[in-house]
Nucleic acid binder design. Structure first.
Lengths: 173, 173
DNA sequence: AATAACATGTAACGCGTTACATGATTAC
DNA sequence: GTAATCATGTAACGCGTTACATGTTATT
């Protein structure tokens, strides 16, 4: 069901076509929160429209259809947001691989951790740039600043942990 | 494919039955890394056995079968571990809900963030207890200490972020 | 004797991936 | 005119959930 609410959430900000939504997933959601491809997005938009949670508000060139969230859609999204599950289902290949580090030897583990340290440093830098630019542009502090800060802190934590783990492996040699 | 490697990884530590593996998922993996139920685990074990990556090393009461990883299984697991994807697929409902915070009003957002701050504090305390006990029991520092530290730092970060976000919402009032 | 825990399985359905399929418009 | 981008769709298959199904052993 999450895909459905991810779409409603994006449409709650502004109307968009399936194509635009697909690109928003690629650029933003897929990196941090929820991955989906156009082959899943288009049918789900049709179902949302059939259920009256979104509606077509414009048709353009090349069969482009712009969807907007309806009042029923906003209500449904709000209900979902205010009723989170007690425990979230976790399926995270990155963390799974960390759990399975113990199946590698010391050198192989180091070879896994180094790219993690480097990659998280790059993500940190990218996010810091994006945050600085947004801070300069918006006088108004926004909700988006909250999730950006969350991402930044998460990458910082991963980075520092990877360095700590590498140092620990060296020390225990 | 991740389920397959999660199972091989657990069996690389020690032989176990499908029932025991199911409980390990419930107690450990499902919380942090990978969720799976017995209805998925049993058929996958049969496929792994058919592929020669695990083998039955004991049969016990109530039709219990103890599986052990084979050399081919260890080789396959190692190959998988040493070849991570460039980008990981993310599907995390918790983070999705954070992204969609902006669809709520200020009070509703606060009502979402408070349980997050409290829940992460509880997880931190649990993990710290587990780490302290393990540190006291094992003289030997282990690989498992690395992933426990990762979890602890992640929950700390979530906790501190939620407090920061709550303060920011109050300040902007 | 009853209950909880142990132990494994399958079938129907829903969600997600990969590949195939088609065509219009814009920029060079 | 040709390549890139825009724009939407479907079909086959694989992964994951829910529910159904069955029986054994240990504990009280």
């Amino acid at each position: 069901m999450s895909l459905r609410y991810a779409l409603l959430g994006l449409l709650a900000e502004e109307p968009a076509s399936g194509y635009e939504l697909t690109r928003k997933f690629e650029r933003v959601l897929a990196r941090y929160a929820w991955h989906a491809q156009h082959s899943q997005i288009y049918p789900e938009l049709n179902r949302l429209a059939a259920d009256g949670l979104v509606e077509i508000v414009a048709e353009g060139a090349r069969g482009r259809r712009t969807y907007a969230i309806t009042d029923a859609g906003r209500a449904d999204l709000r209900t979902w947001m205010l009723d989170p599950p007690d425990v979230f289902t976790v399926r995270n290949e990155f963390v799974l691989r960390l759990f399975l580090l113990s199946t590698l030897d010391r050198d192989e583990a180091r070879a896994m951790l180094r790219p993690i340290a480097d990659g998280s440093a790059r993500e940190m830098a990218d996010l810091r740039d994006a945050i600085d630019k947004a801070d300069a542009a918006d006088a108004e502090p926004s909700f988006n600043r909250l999730i950006a800060e969350y991402g930044l802190r998460m990458f910082e934590t991963t980075h520092e942990w990877a360095l700590w783990a590498l140092a620990r492996l060296d020390r225990a040699e």
